[in-house]
Design a protein around this nucleic acid. Structure first.
Length: 508
DNA sequence: GTCATGACTTAGCAGCAGGCCT
DNA sequence: AGGCCTGCTGCTAAGTCATGAC
């Protein structure tokens, strides 16, 4: 891990050293007393060399390694569930290493220990129990048909259970995924009513009811997560219900808008959420009330928990929980944006671009961010150079056109007329290329910190995309959008349930 | 209501395979 | 054909939510 930023952090180094010392012999413990004095470069070089050697392997050797990996996958990567051979998601155990929590995690650097078969519970039919490694045993073997995991163990850092589970391509996962979207669609039929209800509740006599109504408004309008209380010993992150006074600033007026709420907090994975949103006057007034006489570290919604909120939601609609709002609003946004942004007569490239823009609108709504890719600056520079070159070409073409027009013979013989026309076409073509390159640069820049994958995989009902592709291809055969342009191989397998349904008139 | 636990979904990142350009 | 990017996939952390004991 020497190349990683983690190793420069005090918490990481202290945690690692403390755990490392536990593994030392008495002698070692007496000798090795300061991490700063330890030099790992030889060990590091050993691994760097090993990686280089692997990379330098001749073609045939690499092919052999690949085949061996495929064999392993065939042998251990599948299970039989209800008579169907299904792919397993994570069939390899997590190797030991140093814990890398996200954000300011107090446990970063702790030693994650190797998992032995003696730690692992196997869940399968009695006649299908896989043999443990030679000389070892399973911790336990069970045949619990009420759960979906195949094996489980407890990791030593946070003491949480980890599972071996099926791949998303499996029938089981697909059916669950479909159910999730069906619940979100049911919310669609009820959402106007629910919105009217929580708006009315902004004026409720009980503070508790008002808090719930404002929280629900945030969850609906801003697509916030539920945000339950977390234990200490984790990174300090929050969601809606766990927002604190210090995360909120109220501006009676900001950027020409009234009743502006500024939210600034670290959410899941310590991703920052920072937005200024204009809200209705009662919401603003309620927030003033909730913040009154509180310290910055106090809870904003002190009378509200995720559990009480979800109980309320369950009462409004069977199966309704806070996260359903994210799914609903994400999918609805995709459907709307696709309709707004695409025309049947657009080229295929434009259609695919529009799809990614609709996808981006959702990613922004859900605050799905990523670090700017490492290659970004380089590739952006290349693009800038391309734009500059195009600009020069356009200027040159313009001059040539001017010269042709200024020529005394212009408009005279047919030859000069043709030349003029050619120059005009050339200018037009180059201008078009320039515009496209500029648009590409803008899109690249706008996308550098937006992660599209998360919403695509977890929030967007695939049937919306499929119906859209179908519509685009049917309205315009020439510029149709084939599935591969939108979904990769793994994504097509994940969404097999939706592709099979194949409803071209699907409305979310 | 609170807390712990278990099960399952959602999340960003690293590394690498494979597509694209020269 | 070869090298360079880009986007895919695997990995595993970090959420959500239900349940049950008190």
């Amino acid at each position: 891990m020497l190349h990683h930023e983690y190793t420069t952090k005090e918490v990481f180094r202290n945690n690692f050293f403390k755990d490392w010392r536990k593994e030392m012999t008495l002698e070692e413990r007496l000798l090795i007393t300061h991490l700063d004095k330890c030099d790992f470069t030889e060990i590091h070089r050993y691994f760097v060399d090993k990686a280089a050697a692997r990379k330098a392997l001749p073609k045939e050797e690499k092919q052999k390694l690949k085949e061996e990996a495929a064999k392993l996958q065939q042998e251990f990567g599948y299970c039989i569930l209800d008579g169907h051979r299904e792919k397993i998601g994570n069939f390899k155990m997590e190797p030991p290493g140093l814990f890398c929590g996200r954000g300011e995690h107090p446990k970063m650097g702790m030693v994650k220990r190797r998992v032995l078969s003696e730690d692992v519970v196997i869940n399968c039919s009695r006649d299908a129990v896989p043999g443990p490694p030679v000389g070892h045993q399973w911790r336990e073997v069970c045949s619990d048909t009420t759960v979906t995991w195949l094996a489980a163990w407890t990791e030593n850092i946070q003491n949480r259970t980890k599972y071996i589970a099926l791949n998303p391509s499996s029938k089981l996962k697909g059916e669950k995924d479909r159910q999730k979207y069906e619940v979100a669609r049911r919310l669609g039929g009820l959402v106007d009513e629910i919105r009217a209800q929580y708006q009315a509740a902004w004026e409720a006599p009980e503070v508790k009811t008002r808090q719930r109504a404002v929280a629900l408004y945030f969850i609906d309008k801003l697509a916030l997560r539920a945000g339950h209380e977390k234990e200490d010993k984790t990174a300090d992150t929050v969601g809606c219900c766990s927002l604190r006074v210090e995360h909120v600033r109220l501006h009676a007026r900001a950027a020409g808008r009234q009743h502006v709420v500024e939210l600034d907090f670290l959410g899941k994975d310590s991703v920052r959420y920072h937005q200024l949103v204009s809200v209705e006057e009662p919401v603003f007034r309620n927030l003033q009330l909730f913040m009154k006489n509180k310290k910055p570290r106090d809870s904003l919604f002190d009378r509200l928990t995720t559990s009480s909120l979800n109980k309320h939601l369950q009462h409004l609609m069977h199966g309704l929980t806070a996260k359903v709002f994210r799914t609903y609003n994400a999918s609805v946004t995709l459907q709307e944006q696709l309709q707004v942004l695409t025309r049947a007569t657009d080229s295929q490239a434009d259609k695919v671009l529009a799809y990614s823009r609709a996808n981006r609108a959702v990613a922004i709504l859900c605050n799905h961010q990523r670090a700017t890719p490492r290659s970004f600056e380089t590739s952006m520079q290349a693009l800038r150079r391309k734009i500059e070159a195009k600009e020069a070409q356009v200027a040159e073409a313009q001059e040539e056109l001017q010269r042709a027009m200024a020529s005394p013979r212009t408009g005279g013989d047919s030859k000069s007329r043709r030349l003029l026309q050619q120059r005009q076409q050339r200018l037009q073509r180059l201008s078009g290329q320039l515009a496209r390159a500029r648009a590409q640069a803008t899109a690249k820049d706008e996308n550098k910190q937006v992660a599209l994958g998360t919403s695509k995989l977890n929030y967007l009902d695939p049937r919306i995309s499929i119906a859209w592709m179908w519509l685009m291809s049917c309205r315009c055969r020439r510029f149709g959008v084939p599935v591969e342009k939108v979904y990769s191989r793994a994504q097509r397998e994940r969404f097999a349930w939706a592709l099979q349904e194949g409803d071209e008139h699907f409305q979310f």
